[in-house]
Amino acid sequence: MVRHRDLLWLLTRKDLRLKYKGTALGFLWSLLNPLLLMLVYSFVFTIIARFPVPRYPVFLLAGILPWNTFAIATSSAATTIIGNGNLIRRVRFPREFLPLASVLSSAVNLTLSLGILLVFALYFHQPLGLPLLALPMLLVFQMIFTAGVALILAAVTVYLRDVENLVGVFLTVMFFLTPILYPLTALGGHKSAYFVRLNPMAWLITDYQAIWHENRWPDPIQTAAFGILSGVMLMGGWLLFRRLEQRFAEEV
C-alpha cells in the first residue's frame, strides 16, 4: 500500500477534476448548493419562523458545510467499487483507495469551503477566536469517521445493490435528525432530543457550531467520544472491506 501511495493522490485528483471539469466556476459550483440552501433556510427560519438564533446564516453554514461533505463523500464512495469493475477485475491494486479517494477529495472541498464560511462569519461580525485551533482536529476526526463509513458502504454495495439508494434516503432523514437547521437546544426536553443526542454526526456538527457560532471550545467529552468512535469505525470498516474484498473480482 505504501508503494501505491501516489495512486491515492492520483485517484483523488481525478475525483476532484471530474467534479469540476469543464466548468468556468469550477470549485464554486460545489459551494453553490450549500449557499443556496443557506439562503432558502435563512429566509424560512429567520423571516417566517423567526428562529431565535443570532447570525443564523453563519450557524447554518457551520453545520451544513461539514454535513454536505459527509453526505457527498459517503454517497459517492458507495458506488466506487461497482463503478470500477473494469479495474477490479483486471488490475491488482489496493481497492480501498477507490472509496478513500472520494473521502479525500471531499476533505479538500471542505477545507476550501471553510474559507468561504470565514468570509461569511466576518461579514456577519461573528466573534471568532482561539477555538478555531480545534478545527484541524475536527476535520481529521470527520475524515476518519467518513472513511470508515465509506469503506463499509463501498464493500456492501457490491453484494447488495440497493444500498446505493438506501444511502440517499438515509442521508435525507439524518439531515433532519442532526441539529443543522436548528440548534440542539431548540429541542428542549422533547423526547426526540435523546435520539438526536445519540447520533454521532450531531456530536460532530455541534462541535463545528461551537467553534464557528458560539466562539467556544468544543465539548471535550463529546469530541473524544467522536474521536474514539471514528477510530473504531475506520478499523471496523477496514476489516469488513478486507473480508468482502475477496470476491469483488467475481461479483462486480
Binding site: 508503494r3 501516489d6 495512486l7 492520483l10 479495474l87 488490475v91 491494486f93
Partner: peptide, 12 residues
C-alpha cells in the same frame, strides 16, 4: 500512462 503506472505500483 500515469494512471496505469501508479495502479501497477509505480511512484509518480
Amino acid at each position: 500512462i500515469y494512471l496505469y503506472g501508479t495502479l501497477l505500483g509505480m511512484r509518480r
